[in-house]
Computed example of a mutant assay.
Amino acid sequence: MTDTIPGTAEAVCAPQPDAHAIGSDVAAELATTLKALAEPLRLRMVSYVATAPAGEACVCDLAALTQVSQPTVSHHLKVLKDVGLLTSERRGTWVWYRIAPGFTGAVATVLDAFAPAVLARTAVTAAPKGLAGIADADAALDRLVVELADAYPVPLDVVRTTVRESYVGLARTAHVSAHLLTLTERFARQRLTDLARPADAPPQVLFVCVANAGRSQLAAALVRRYAGNRVVVRSAGSAPAADVHPGVRPALAALGADEAFCKPLTDDAVRAADVVVTMGCGDVCPVLPGVRYEDWKVGDPALASPAGVAAIRETIDARVRVLLGALLPDLELPPGPAPVDGATDVH
């Protein structure tokens, strides 16, 4: 808050430190919990437990994940239990760990929002500086509107809005401008196809994660690989990254996926979908009647080792097979992938 000295334009600082900051007692308690998380092994343990299919993990799994001595594992687990992040239950000779109910949402925020934001900041810092747009964007977009208006049975104003929104949505995260117009055209065509979707179209699936840089891209590539044109598949991110994660690109290439790019989540993509699968992005998807929703607990490949990426792909593959079995009961699927060495290292 500032005041002004009469007769002058000079502002006088009038601090009110307690007006907005959290209380000192709350800050101390919060700092203790954050300090417990501020250790790489403990973060990996928490991520493993949080994304385990059953929502829990055995101490033997966590020991294999961290590859440290049993006393060291026990120490880290005790730290996480002491601050209330984990609960445990002994069954026979093993102890099983779960995220404490009150911390489920907080842990999801750290893993699915805060961590990708940190990685994105690092990527931006390391990336070469460049314009996010193109010099003659208006003229180029106007030409694209005319071209697409001739190709889709959609009102001109809708085409224009879709093209402009697509450009702006992609430009927000673009590091360089070389391919921005090409990506805008691809994204706008996809959205206009969804808007003009006929009633007898094949089933459509939308995969949504935070960055659209890993999980949702892998899931979409697997559906295309197995179902071909019998299922229309889309992917999007609630906070899309600038590019697909480097660790995921080899897995996408192995699936024969086209060059992928990160796309923002749009309402028209949700409306066009018969099934929306969320993967760690919280409650960002609008809930619409007539749309089936599923939430898959899958680790983030951006935080994984190469073996972890392979294991995550295997997990997604198994879920995709179940989904396609429900959508296309007569679809013949090839045998599933072989178990991955080091598959416990998924986070």
Rank of each mutant, 00 (worst) to 15 (best):
D150M: 04
V270E: 05
G342A: 08
P240K: 04
T32W: 00
P116Q: 11
G214M: 07
V275T: 14
T278M: 13
A139R: 15
V46R: 00
L170N: 02
L180W: 05
V223W: 03
D295R: 15
A127S: 13
P335N: 14
A221L: 03
V248N: 07
Q190K: 03
P337E: 00
A52R: 01
V309N: 02
A211M: 10
A54Q: 10
W96F: 15
A19N: 00
D341I: 15
H245K: 07
I312Q: 07
R321Y: 06
A227Y: 08
P116R: 12
A132L: 10
A106K: 09
A57F: 07
D138S: 09
R90M: 09
P116H: 13
V322H: 07
P240A: 01
A52W: 06
D82F: 11
S305P: 02
V340D: 01
A9M: 06
G256R: 06
D3H: 01
C262N: 03
A260I: 00
T122F: 08
Q16P: 00
E29W: 07
L183W: 09
R172K: 13
I22H: 04
A115M: 11
G92S: 08
V124D: 08
V205S: 05
I312G: 05
P334G: 12
L30G: 01
L252C: 06
D61V: 07
S235E: 07
V95S: 10
V284S: 14
A9C: 04
A21E: 11
D341E: 15
K297M: 10
P6K: 00
I134K: 04
T161F: 12
T87H: 06
A221M: 05
L80M: 11
T33N: 01
T193Q: 06
T266F: 01
T193L: 09
V168T: 12
I134N: 01
V26I: 13
V320D: 04
P329E: 14
G23I: 02
A106E: 14
Q190F: 08
H179T: 12
P264Y: 00
T184A: 05
R172P: 00
A135I: 09
Q204A: 13
V73E: 01
A310V: 05
L288I: 12
V176T: 10
A241C: 00
D268A: 14
A343K: 05
V79E: 04
K35I: 09
P240Q: 02
P53M: 13
H347Y: 14
M1L: 03
S24Y: 00
R191N: 11
R44P: 00
E39T: 04
I312W: 03
R215P: 06
A9W: 10
A272R: 01
V309L: 04
V223I: 13
L331K: 12
